[in-house]
Simulated assay, not measured.
Amino acid sequence: MGHFWAFLSLIHSLAGPSLTLLYPLYASVCAIESTSKLDDEQWLAYWILYSFITLMEMVAAPILYWIPIWHQIKLVVVAWLVLPQFRGASFVYERFVREQLKKYRVKTGEHDYVKEGESE
């Protein structure tokens, strides 16, 4: 039984970085090279959210230390953000982040933040 847990631990230690960094890096490069803007939005949103999760994880480290399944929870959340079947990063960006940007009228460059094709 000890070998089984060691194997699961090895899988988890490989799945985490692969799912949170390696696949998103590869998909981001593919998105840059493609002509579609839809995949650009997905991966830019992913990196914004991943950075936010990492920042919150650093701040809350003393609390998260006491949650034994934190890494598994994070892996499931990141899988939802990353996997193309779910497009979770785009969903979170469109539903929450973008709404806050519009609410507080964040300025980017010389123009107000308004998505192409939309009017105020």
Rank of each mutant, 00 (worst) to 15 (best):
M1R: 10
M1D: 09
G2K: 12
G2L: 06
G2D: 13
H3K: 12
H3C: 07
H3Q: 12
F4G: 03
W5Q: 11
L8Q: 11
I11F: 15
I11P: 03
H12L: 12
L14S: 04
G16L: 11
P17A: 03
P17Y: 03
L19P: 00
L22M: 07
L22D: 01
L22G: 02
P24Q: 02
Y26T: 05
S28L: 03
V29A: 06
C30M: 12
C30H: 09
A31P: 01
A31E: 01
I32F: 14
I32K: 09
S34A: 13
S34Y: 02
T35W: 07
S36Y: 04
S36E: 11
K37E: 09
K37Q: 12
K37I: 05
D39K: 11
D39L: 09
E41F: 03
Q42Y: 02
W43F: 11
W43S: 00
A45E: 00
A45V: 04
A45Y: 05
Y46D: 00
Y46Q: 02
W47M: 00
I48T: 07
I48G: 02
S51A: 15
I53M: 00
T54I: 01
T54Y: 01
M56I: 05
E57Q: 09
M58R: 10
M58E: 04
A60N: 06
A60R: 02
A60G: 02
A61F: 08
P62T: 06
P62M: 05
I63T: 10
I63R: 07
L64N: 05
L64E: 00
L64D: 03
W66L: 10
W66Q: 12
W66C: 11
W66K: 13
P68T: 00
I69M: 11
W70R: 07
H71I: 05
Q72P: 02
I73Q: 05
K74R: 15
K74I: 04
L75P: 07
V77I: 14
V78F: 04
W80D: 04
L81E: 02
L81P: 00
V82M: 10
V82R: 06
F86D: 06
F86A: 08
A89D: 04
Y93G: 06
Y93C: 04
Y93K: 06
E94S: 15
R95S: 14
R95N: 15
F96S: 05
V97I: 15
R98Y: 13
E99N: 08
E99L: 08
Q100R: 08
Q100D: 05
Q100M: 14
Y104N: 10
R105F: 06
T108S: 08
G109T: 04
E110M: 10
H111E: 14
Y113K: 05
V114H: 08
K115S: 07
